[in-house]
Each structure stands twice: as C-alpha cells, then as structure tokens.
Design a binder for these strands. Structure first.
Length: 142
DNA sequence: GTTGAGCGTT
C-alpha cells in the first residue's frame, strides 16, 4: 500500500468525517417549512362539553378560576325541562388563561364526567379570532 | 328519578 494512501486513511478520513459533521451541523435547516402548525385558533372563550347534569355555573367557575380570571360562565339549559344541556362556555380575560385552563382541564373528570374542552367558535361578537403569535406555555402541571 | 354528541341568550 502506498504511503500517501496510508496517510490518507489514518488521518484524512477522520478529518473528513469531522468536517462533514461540522458542515451538516452548521447547515441551515434544509428548506424545512414548519409542518403546518396545527396550533388551533385560540380565543379567550372555551367550549366545555361533557358536563354533568348536576354541574352549574358556580361549580364550573370554581373549577376554572384557578387558571385565570373568569369573566363569564354560561351553561346552556333546556327551556322546557330546565335541565342542563350538558355543555357551556367559560370565558377568561385573555387567550393565555383560556389555553392554560383547556390544557389542564380537558379530559379531567368533573362531577363524575370527563370534560371535553375546545375553543369556542361561532358567536364571537367583537372581532375576529386572533391567532396567538407567541407560544403559550401553561405553567400548571396537571 | 331515563339520555351523553355537541357550539349559546340577552
């Protein structure tokens, strides 16, 4: 085996690997478009379903007020029977609190029923649905 | 005395 080839195998090869690693590390993300941020639109109002028949505005408020300032709580009742329709709305003073409460309370059982929470849609009077620009991180670990 | 996916009043 020729001497140059020997040297090449002993020293240059590892160097090449090192260089390749450095280059690939320094290389910009290869046209990596963020995979369609499925971050759902967020607004200060939550749609809360799966409510127990016995859940009222008071118990709802108590369950959500630890995540922020609850500005409005509404449970939909049947006009005739007066019984709860099993869902309602909880509005916070801002999107962050709403998202935090959603992440923390979605799926949790309340009064024996698992809550199904999502951001309210529809009757959004007072402006368009604002998509948050900054990542919102819930500080609660529930 | 029942039931169980869903998006609501002024």
């Amino acid at each position: 085996m020729a001497l140059p080839e020997l040297l090449s195998r002993l020293r240059l090869t590892p160097l090449r690997h090192h260089l390749r690693r450095s280059l690939s590390a320094a290389a910009p993300p290869p046209d990596e478009h963020p995979p369609a941020p499925p971050q759902p639109p967020s607004n200060p109002k939550l749609f809360v379903a799966g409510l127990s028949w016995s859940a009222d505005e008071r118990s709802l408020t108590d369950a959500f007020s630890s995540f922020g300032t609850v500005t409005e709580v509404r449970i939909m009742y049947d006009k005739n029977s007066g019984r709860s329709r099993g869902f309602g709305f909880v509005q916070f003073s801002n999107d962050y609190e709403a998202k935090c409460a959603k992440d923390a309370m979605d799926g949790k059982v309340m009064l024996g029923r698992p809550l199904r929470i999502s951001f309210a849609l529809g009757k959004v009077r007072g402006g368009p649905v604002i998509v948050p620009r900054l990542p919102m991180v819930c500080k609660f670990n529930i």
